[in-house]
Design a protein around this nucleic acid. Structure first.
Lengths: 341, 341
DNA sequence: GTGAAAGCGCTAACAC
DNA sequence: GTGTTAGCGCTTTCAC
């Protein structure tokens, strides 16, 4: 960190401000001086100091990524590396840095966010989850700090920029697909019931059943953490019902792996005894045994668009909140079969 | 970003420098003034500006994480979220920020690293991979910038701080385990042959065979990218050999999933027809069908220790390079079986 | 134990 | 087109 803008200015025989303008590629600087200055930069091996720039310009060109609390396994869900890929791509396109939260509990994450907002280290934030009654989200809203959420905000939907899929419709489509395949006893396995995405998908599922005139059965909707023993128990109970389901909708590929595992333990054949339809279509869905039918929600694209949205939010602070809906596709693989009546 | 140290100073009737000292919890400030200043901070809702602090103190309290190039699927390997968990934990313990690279190609990542080093935005760097002839690593070495690598550096091993497992011994142990189980026809499936970790593991495998007096067969060592068609072909060829192996050592759990898949397609039963032993023991290993025997390399711990190592490197720039070896355990699951002679 | 003042490296008016 | 200058908000000698 030895060579500064002043050194370059001296060598090139110009003022520091001129050097600064060359860095910013200001059009008012003549090509001739630009060349001269750039030559001096190269000779000295100059690299701009981002910190100084940030302090002076009051912007860091860094975005903060708010992870879900990593206490439970949620952090390990392949969803996250996949969004990160999209986020990275977009950030790189716009020469933006990416900083991630490191908190384990919600409390810790909240503190970090507070510091990020006031510390000037990030220009905006991206929430990688959306859940009911999220303190972080409320805080950001009140602070009027630029942020977008990936997923649908539980409240204030129209005043918060977000990028999402139509998860209600996706849930409905999946249920319909299974209904059309002859299934009528369809259960839904969701994980954390606080996640808006789960809520939407299950609502869609319920809507499809209703339209088909099939009554909802409470014992057909399960919400348990599937990395834990509780989840196993729940599936076991489900399969022991006298009218056990012939098809399962599972809210997430990673959970589906666990479910497939349990079904195997219980001696159930997929799709022979029971069909499984999953969500997200991460790389894993294809590699599982049997390969999972899954809703491809274009995770990478969610990440990419989130950055783009955040950027316009930062550049035009007064602009209205925007919602961006990313399309999805049902990807059919061998984990589902038609029901023979 | 409205309220500054000056505002606090004014309200508390002290000098800005005193406020600064209170923030740093300088012991030379009396408890009385500390209380007074803290009260003023709370009243005003003061939060320090990290950028200004960084500029003045020439340290950012942010670490940079260098990801492997995300062009191929490597980024999506569950290894990464898992190390990130360890990194996060340690970073959070020490109130450090974490910034990640976003480059897709090696070229892009190199540029980013260059900027990170000179831009003052990070105090040190952690390389999440180690491969043969890595430009980034050479650059950091020459620049004498604080960094540690997760894995074993291919060159300059003794002058570069790193945290690693004894992958040679692990490879050997796995091969021995299979030999002890009666297998003699053991193949090794590695991914990218440039990764030092793969190289070490295969060396260990070779050493074990040699000690057992079993000749190495070239057609038993495969290096192909398993997310691609080439990988499938390779396994297929392997299984079509007249002396096809009865056991497979696969360099990574994620790859193992792909391998299990192909074996299934080829109609091979695991472990009935062939045993599979894997590495890393990510969450997935347990969820696969059949559950994978895998070497638990304590990924989280690798990440955690990397941060700790980097920190001492930053604090004591003159200190010698350190190597930290994290223990591993063979975790036996049903993907391996004894060979009946 | 506390204050005054310089300065970290850059940007952005404002001049001319 | 380019130079001058005043900060950005903090830390850190150096006084006392």
């Amino acid at each position: 960190m030895a060579v500064t803008i002043k050194d370059v200015a001296k060598l090139a025989n110009v003022a520091p401000s001129t050097v600064s303008r060359v860095i910013a590629n200001n059009p008012r600087i003549s090509e001739k001086t630009k060349r001269k200055v750039r030559k001096a930069m190269n000779e000295l091996g100059y690299h701009p100091n981002f910190i100084a720039r940030s302090l002076a310009s009051k912007s860091s060109d860094v975005l903060g990524i708010i992870m879900p609390r990593s206490g439970d396994g949620s952090f390990l869900n392949p969803f996250f590396p996949t969004v990160m890929k999209g986020l990275s791509q977009a950030a790189h396109d716009d020469r933006l840095g990416l900083q991630i939260t490191t908190g384990i509990t919600e409390e810790e994450i909240y503190d970090e966010v507070e510091k990020m907002v006031h510390g000037g280290r990030v220009d905006g934030l991206i929430l990688l989850y959306s859940k009911v009654g999220d303190k972080v989200l409320h805080y950001l809203r009140e602070a009027n700090f630029p942020f977008v959420v990936i997923g649908k905000p539980f409240e204030y939907e129209s005043s918060i920029s977000h990028v999402d899929n139509d998860n209600f419709q996706a849930g409905k489509d999946v249920a319909k697909y299974l209904l059309d395949s002859g299934h009528t006893d369809i259960a839904f396995i969701g994980g954390n019931a606080d996640l808006v995405v789960t809520i939407e998908r299950i609502k869609g599922y319920e809507a499809a059943l209703k339209e088909a005139g099939i009554p909802m059965r409470n014992e057909y909707a399960i919400h348990e953490d599937f990395m834990l023993e509780g989840g196993k128990e729940a599936v076991k109970r489900l399969m022991e019902l006298e009218n056990s389901p012939t098809a399962l909708i599972v809210a997430d590929d990673f959970m589906s792996l666990g479910v497939l595992n349990m079904l195997d333990e219980l001696g159930k054949d997929v799709p022979g005894d029971i069909s499984v339809f999953s969500f997200n279509n991460v790389l894993l869905a294809e590699l599982s045994k049997p390969p999972l039918s899954s809703v491809d929600i274009n995770i990478e694209s969610l990440g990419y668009q989130a950055v783009k949205l955040l950027l316009t939010r930062i550049k035009e602070p007064g602009s209205p909140a925007m919602r961006m809906i990313v399309p999805y596709q049902l990807v059919i693989r061998s984990s589902v079969a038609k029901m023979n009546k």
